[in-house]
Design a protein around this nucleic acid. Structure first.
Lengths: 137, 137, 137, 137
DNA sequence: GTGGTCTAGACCACC
DNA sequence: GTGGTCTAGACCACG
C-alpha cells in the first residue's frame, strides 16, 4: 500500500492516512482479512510519530473499517461498500484539476506537463512494483 | 467568481480561498488586470473573518497571482511565478503523485489514467480559451 | 540572538524580527541546523503578541530561511532561496538603489562609496567566517 | 533630487518622502532658498497620490524644514543642522548591511555582488546626471 | 512542549 | 472606500 503525505496541504497527517487507507479498502487494494502494516513500521516509513498513525487506526476501528486486537496485527474488516465508479472518478478529477491549475499558473506548456506526468507515472509503476516485495520482505 | 468553503475537509479556509482563486485565475474566469473582490466583502460573503481572506490575498501576492497596494483594489497579475524552476517542479510532482497514489488505490490501469489525464488536460485548455467569450456573453 | 524592536521607525515589528533573524543567519550568529527560539518565548521576550512572531516565522519559512513543522522546534535551513534569479536580482537592486540614493543625498563621491562598500563587504565576510568560532568560544 | 520609494519596506510612503527630503536638506543636496518640486509633479513622478506628498510637505513645514506659501513654490528654510559625518556613515552602513545580508541569503559570491554594485553605481550616475536637467526643464 | 489557524475588534495609511 | 498590521484569546494537531 502506498501512502503519500503532503505537509503543506493543511490536512492533518492522521486524516490523510485515514482517508488513504479507506480509499485503499474501498477500491480493493486491500481485501477483507488482509493484515494492516504495523503501526510502528508505518510510522517509521512515513517519518511520523507513532501516535499519529495510532490515531488514524483508532478512528478506522471506530468506523468499523479495521479490527484491532492487542498483540495481533490489525486486519481489514469485511463488507467495505466500494465507492461507485462515479464517485471515484470525481475524486480523481479533482486531484487532476489541482495539477492542471498549478501547471497553468507555472506556465507549463501542455505538452511538457503531459511528458512530466508520463515520466512520473512510469517511475511510480516501478517503485510500487518493488515496494510490494519490500513490504512483504 | 464562485467560492465554496468546505469545513469538513480539514483544509484551512484561507487555503481553500487561495486555491479557488488560483483556479479561477487559471481557468480564465478571472482575466489579467481584473480587480479582485475587496477583502471585506469577500469575507462577509463567505462568512469568515476579514483576516482569513487577508491571509489568502497575502499569499496570492507572494505567489505572484495578484498585486495588492494599500488603498487600491487588488488586481490579477500576469501569471508569473517568482519561484525557481526546481521548486516549481517539486510542487507539481507532489500534486501529480497524489493523483498517482489515488489512482493506484482505485486500481486504475496506467493507460486508463493517462487517457483520463489527457482528456482533462485538453478540456481545460478549451475552457481557458473559451472563457473569455463566455465571460463576455 | 539579540533582537531590538524600534517602534518609531514605522517598520512593522514582524518585519524587524524577520530582518534581524535573517541578519543573524547571514552573519553566522545562527548556524545551519540550529533550532530557533520558540515563537511563544520570543514573543514574550519582545513583548509582542505571539501572532506577530508567528507571522515573521511563516515568512522566514517561505523565503527558505527556516523550516517549521508543527510539534517540532523550527530549525535554520541551509540557505537556499526558492526564488527565481530574476526576482532575486530585482530585490537586491532595490536595496542597492536605496544605498545609492542615500549616498547621493549625502554627497558621497562614487569612489568613496565604492570603497566603503568594499570595506563593509570584506568585514562581513570575515565576520561570517569567524562567527562559528566566536559562537563556540 | 532623487527619491526612491520602497513599497515592501513597510515604511509608509509619506514617511519615506519626508525622510529623504530631510536627508537631502541636511546633506546639502538642497540649499537654503532652493524651491522644492511642486506637489503635483512630484506625486506624478513617484506615481503616488498628491495627498501623500502633501502630507509629507505639511509635516516638513511643521518641522520647519520648508516654508510653504499658497500660490508660490515651497522653499527650503535656512539653518539646517547638517548631520554629523558619524551619523551619516551609520545610516549608510545600515543600508549597505541590508544589501550584504540579502546577498548572502541569495548566496551571491562577493565578487559578483561587487560587480553588480559597481554596475548599478555607474548606471545611477548617468541617470542622475540627466535627471537634473530633466527636473529643471 | 511545539507551530498553525481562526475570531473579534482596533488602528493606520492610502486613494 | 481600499489593503496592512497588531492584540487578545481560543482551539487544534503533533511530539
Amino acid at each position: 500500500m502506498q501512502i503519500q503525505l503532503n505537509y503543506k496541504s493543511g490536512v492533518p497527517p492522521y486524516q490523510q492516512i485515514l482517508e488513504q487507507i479507506k480509499y485503499a479498502a474501498a477500491s480493493g487494494t486491500l481485501a477483507k482479512g488482509d493484515s494492516m502494516p504495523p503501526i510502528r513500521s508505518l510510522a517509521e516509513k512515513l517519518r511520523v510519530n507513532r501516535n499519529t498513525v495510532a490515531k488514524a487506526y483508532a478512528l478506522l476501528e471506530q468506523e468499523g473499517v479495521i479490527v484491532t486486537r492487542p498483540g495481533k496485527p490489525s486486519v481489514l474488516a469485511g463488507n467495505q461498500s466500494p465507492l461507485k465508479k462515479g464517485v471515484r472518478d470525481k475524486i480523481l478529477d479533482e486531484l487532476i484539476d489541482a495539477v492542471l491549475v498549478q501547471a497553468h499558473h507555472f506556465q507549463f506548456r501542455p505538452a511538457d506537463l503531459l511528458k512530466r506526468f508520463q515520466k512520473r507515472l512510469s517511475d511510480f509503476g516501478n517503485t510500487t512494483a518493488n515496494s510490494k516485495n519490500a513490504a512483504k520482505g
